[in-house]
Each structure stands twice: as structure tokens, then as C-alpha cells.
Design a protein around this nucleic acid. Structure first.
Ligand SMILES: [Mn+2]
Ligand SMILES: [Mn+2]
Ligand SMILES: [Zn+2]
Ligand SMILES: [Zn+2]
Lengths: 142, 142
DNA sequence: AATTTTAATGCAAATTTTTTGCATTAAAAG
DNA sequence: CTTTTAATGCAAAAAATTTGCATTAAAATT
């Protein structure tokens, strides 16, 4: 849940029209405390307003392209989506439970990554360093 | 390319029958210097011996389940497969080029991850910490 | 060696997730 | 008000993976 982000201006600052659908998708993502799959997002938006599944995919693409939302890989075969790091959200890694498929955001302090050396020596463009922890969550472990 | 691994005994040590197909799949993965997709592996094995695509998927599953092979997520929608860390291969992270889809293995020293604090405090089971760097490779950047 | 049991494979079809093409509607610009 | 552009919907396709079931090969028993 983000109380700091103004979704409408997040869109407008990127030159994107703040359509009803885009706002709904972004709110679902931003109001959730962990990343969601496109299917989850579709089902949630759909409960309140009519929307097509393809529209959700297209909105997710445009939000990812504009750096508003992060596309996060899982140990499964669907991507999950969460707010991209910004002034209110520092970068952090995620935990993926391979039993129930739930993702959790991990405390940035609990896991540290140092990519400085790589960034200096890598002969290509680096856009993102994604860290994902896979295992079984505390609910499923019982 | 791994000159140290004896694929046949890797299989047998895990209690897996060393069938022709399993050996072929494991050799293709082990002899390659970067991770490959199931489709790549299928096409490569197929050139020398007849094999069904589904068999490749099933062999990959069994190799991953037994910790012989690592299933590696990409920024795209297919998994890639590489030899799992063992006495001859230390754990390392990977680079994924979102233009050509090629993965590279990164030097373990170029990127350091410290998951000790997480492992102490996380209320679940941690099986794997995957680090993936996304961007554009030196060939595609031109 | 013949028989029974288990493991591995093939093939067809289904599933899941994502993408594309094209028509329609809504919004913005002129 | 008209023209242009952006957003959406719907149907279909594509890509990756999974499932069910039959067949074959290998291993274990008798
Ligand atoms: Mn998060
Ligand atoms: Mn590797
Ligand atoms: Zn779980
Ligand atoms: Zn490339």
C-alpha cells in the first residue's frame, strides 16, 4: 500500500493519458503489499469495472516501458508486477514461494547486492539487477 | 564446457537411470558455456538423435528436481537451463540480453550477494537465491 | 529364460500466458 | 465540428509448458 504515490500524476509525468483502466491497474498494483500476476490484476480490476484481459496486458507493457511498474520474474512461468523503485520505494528483492506462488517483498537491508564492479567492467548496457529468493513460505511449510 | 563432470555418474549418483536421452540433454547443457532454453536444447539434441520435445521437458524437470541442473529465469517467458553449482562450478549470476535473448554466465567475483542475514531471519525455507542482470549485450548494443 | 514390474518415451491434446491484427470507441487537437 | 490520435475490445494466434494415455525399454523376480 502506497500512501505517497499519486498515480494520476505518475502517469501524466510520463506523458501517458490517465485513463480509467490505467488508473485501475496502477492502483491495484500500488495498493498491494506484494507483486501480482497479470491474471491477478485482471481479476481484481474486473470486480469493479469492465475491462478486457488484453487491455491489462497492454497497460502493463506501457507501465513497464515507462518505468512506473517493474516486471518481476518468478520461479513459475508468469511474470508478477510491482511498483518500480522511486523516491518512496527503494529497490528491494523478492521471495517466491514455489508451493503457493505468492511473492513477498523483502526488506532491503536483509539482502545486500554489490554490482559496482560489474557495472564498471561489463561490456554492455545494464538496466536492472533482479534478485529473487525461491523457497517455501512460512504458511506452506507447515 | 565442462571437462570435469562425468555426466553418467552425475545421473547415477542421483539414482537416475543414465538413458541415452538423459545423457544427451545433460551433455548439451554441460558442454555449452551459457544457459540454454528447452527449445534450444531440444533442437540441439534432435540434430543427432531422434527425441520428442516432451521428453526434453520431462528430462529437464527430473534433472532440476535432483539438483543436477539449474532452472534459470530470464527477462523473457522461457526458462533457461545450466549446470547446477557443484564442486567444479561455483554459484554465479547471469546476464540476460533483452534484445537477442542470449544469456551469459557472470564471473562470480564481479557481483557479490550477501544473504546471510536473510537466511537467519526469514520465516520460511530458502532454496535458492537467483541474481539476474538484464540489459543489452555488447553485440546488440551497436 | 520367461514373466512381472517399473521406468522412460512418444504422441496427441490441453493449458497457461502472452501477443497480434483489426475493428470500434473515446479523447485530444485543430 | 471535423480530423487525428490514443485507448480499448474481441477473436485468433503464438509460445512455452503440462497432462493423459498408450507403447516400448529396462530392471527385477520367479
Ligand atoms: Mn516489492
Ligand atoms: Mn551459468
Ligand atoms: Zn507459500
Ligand atoms: Zn544481445
Amino acid at each position: 500500500m502506497c500512501h505517497h504515490c499519486d498515480y494520476k500524476s505518475l502517469l501524466e509525468q510520463s506523458g501517458l493519458g490517465a485513463s480509467e483502466n490505467r488508473l485501475s491497474v496502477l492502483e491495484v498494483i500500488g495498493n498491494n503489499s506484494y507483486p501480482l500476476s497479470a491474471g491477478d490484476i485482471f481479476k481484481t480490476v474486473e470486480r469493479h469495472s469492465a475491462i478486457n484481459r488484453v487491455t491489462v496486458y497492454r497497460i502493463l507493457d506501457v507501465l513497464v516501458d515507462h518505468g512506473i511498474v517493474d516486471r518481476i520474474s518468478t520461479g513459475g512461468r508468469a511474470f508478477y508486477y510491482g511498483l518500480a523503485p522511486n523516491s518512496h520505494h527503494q529497490p528491494h528483492s523478492h521471495f517466491y514461494c514455489k508451493h503457493c506462488g505468492q511473492m513477498d517483498c523483502l526488506n532491503p537491508e536483509s539482502l545486500s547486492v554489490d554490482a559496482n564492479l560489474l557495472k564498471k567492467t561489463f561490456p554492455g548496457r545494464i538496466d536492472k539487477v533482479e534478485v529473487r529468493v525461491d523457497g517455501i513460505c512460512k504458511n506452506c511449510i507447515k
